[in-house]
Design a protein around this nucleic acid. Structure first.
Lengths: 329, 329
DNA sequence: AGAACTCGAGTAATCGTTTACCTGGACGCT
DNA sequence: AGCGTCCAGGTAAACGATTACTCGAGTTCT
């Protein structure tokens, strides 16, 4: 593979001049510059990234660590991150933790070893794992879930859950249940809290037995929904904490012969492209995922420039998209 | 940030010994080794990746370049890639080209500069872009779409399309249309060819006006479906070339008041988790996406070890999952 | 006992860049 | 003319690991 030396020899200049010419230092003679460029082209020269990064003591790479690549919410974040990063010449390395703290830890180590310029992550659990980044001076921005001591870009998910629950109450549903995410995950807890807020505000009793937890990924929601309905006085409506859970819940409703909007009111988090294809179409809480990624990246880039400011919190709003699954009738 | 020198000083040994101890060279005195390990831990030492890669002239990173992160087919491939890579200590860098050859080109340059050990990609168009990798001696495996001169892991998509079309014919549909991907994309052309094969085999006339092309991503399928149905003698069934197209097509059918399985037979490529939630559930061609990723990674790893063998082609089979959207009733 | 050998651990070269520093020629000023 | 300034471009020192080579001590064999 051609090195800067080969280019220098071919162009008849020193390696310093090659480096300067290719990096656009103004003071190089245009004629030399042209010779360098043509030599580089002829040799198919591509600078050695590791060598450059070693010398510069910095990289133009951002780490993006998310908990589930199969979840459209996170891939939408990824596009937001990528578009903003790309525009200023940064590359993005996407890592998938599967909600597994050990995997997350491994990727954080990789991020440190590769000396990425910064990390955007949706932390799986506590803050502990991410501390290691700060110890090494790598800026972090948390998305979707808060992380102590770093910038965060969040959605006012508690408020959104409250609105969604209120919407169900307004539609005349009375025994509202919740298919919640795993307790301990901040977004899951917040959504549950918002759900409870709405019940309290409406003077409706909050019965714990109308709530079931399930893993965000996987098939737990199916069983949770069956269990909710198989008790006496079952819920007549459900708030479902994300789109994976919605799949399981909808399957269960179908098996039980429950028609959404008629026999049971449904609202789920995350506006997925197929929500409106269902019969009836699914009412959802649309989170601004792309914007979360874009804003987080802007914050991260700012912090890469200057890491002295205190951590900030940006909260974006979710919007309820009413469709027929929550309309009584 | 702590360097190997700091660790050496603290442990009272040379950097060579630190390197050997941390990399598990057998001949280091266990006691020294322990001192090194504890010093490294105390300092929070993480080896400098760029420096290591520079010296070793190799990296443990694979590039995965796909054309659409929002497409579950590709994210499933990504998981297959990651699981296999992870198991042997490689990291995976995921890049998203949005079917944009320029973006693809940029990422290939990044891959070369970072000296990744190998690349797995779904090429956007011609082979031209990927040649640059081979010029630099970087092994490539193509997935989903063929690439001249490199290993490929493909699906027998033509055969699958033929089976799907035959299935529609068997169900009694006669005027079968196709919502195809962009012509020029190999999978799109193959699926169209398979569709034609089935028609020929059944002695049904193949009418070009029953075929419309649309971009794989985006809303083109909606218009294509409307156009197909707004002609005299419209198709009574549709073969749809991927899940994004299916969304547009289903919307159009809904607007036209066409009931899948009743007024119009539908089969779409890619088994998405929501296919069975539709009413009626959607008949799909399930592609073994995870396996594609896993197999491709094994091939790539083998080639990183020995790049002398001639390119191989692995073809996996897709399976038709019959649901109600294609059952005449 | 002395030579040959083994082996663990240190010394220093090396990977390919970038860049601080140096050099020498051109130019301007007195 | 002589001196100072400026600046393009070359020389060489980093960056932080790995590893070929070297060295010295300990072991074995004659």
């Amino acid at each position: 593979m051609a090195t800067i030396n080969d280019v220098a020899t071919m162009a008849g200049v020193s390696t310093a001049t090659v480096s300067r010419a290719l990096n656009g230092v103004a003071s190089v003679d245009p004629e030399l510059c042209a010779r360098v460029v043509s030599a580089a082209k002829e040799l198919g020269y591509q600078p050695n990234g590791p060598a450059r990064n070693l010398r510069r003591q910095e990289t133009a790479v951002l780490g993006l660590i998310i908990s589930d690549v199969a979840n459209p919410f996170f891939t939408a974040i990824a596009r937001g991150v990528e578009d903003v990063a790309q525009a200023v010449g940064y590359s993005v390395v996407l890592c998938n933790t599967d909600e597994d703290a050990a995997k997350e830890r491994r990727y954080l180590d990789v991020a440190i070893q590769e000396r990425v310029a910064g990390v955007i992550m949706s932390p799986t659990d506590s803050a502990s794992n991410a501390d290691v980044l700060r110890e090494h001076g790598i800026p972090v921005v948390a998305v979707d879930r808060p992380l102590a001591g770093s910038d965060r870009v969040l959605v006012d998910t508690r408020m959104a859950a409250e609105q969604a629950t209120k919407h169900l109450l307004d539609q005349g549903y009375r025994r509202i249940g919740c298919v919640a995410g795993p307790s301990g995950v901040q977004t899951a807890d917040d959504r549950l809290a918002g759900y409870a807020d709405a019940l309290v505000a409406a003077g409706v009793e909050h019965e714990p037995r109308l709530v079931r937890h399930a893993e965000y990924r996987g098939a737990g929601a199916h069983g949770a929904t069956l269990a909710l309905r198989q008790q006496p006085d079952p819920p007549d409506a459900l708030l479902i904490a994300n789109s994976s859970l919605a799949i399981g819940a909808l399957e269960a409703c179908h098996e039980l012969g429950l028609r959404p909007g008629k026999d049971i009111g449904l609202v789920a988090f995350d506006d997925v492209p197929w929500a409106k294809l269902l019969d009836p179409p699914l009412t959802v809480v649309a989170q601004p995922a792309y914007d979360i990624g874009a804003v987080a990246t802007q914050l991260l880039l700012a912090r890469i420039g200057d890491n002295s400011k205190p951590p900030s919190t940006t909260t974006l709003n979710a919007t309820l998209i009413e469709r027929a699954s929550s309309r009584r009738g």
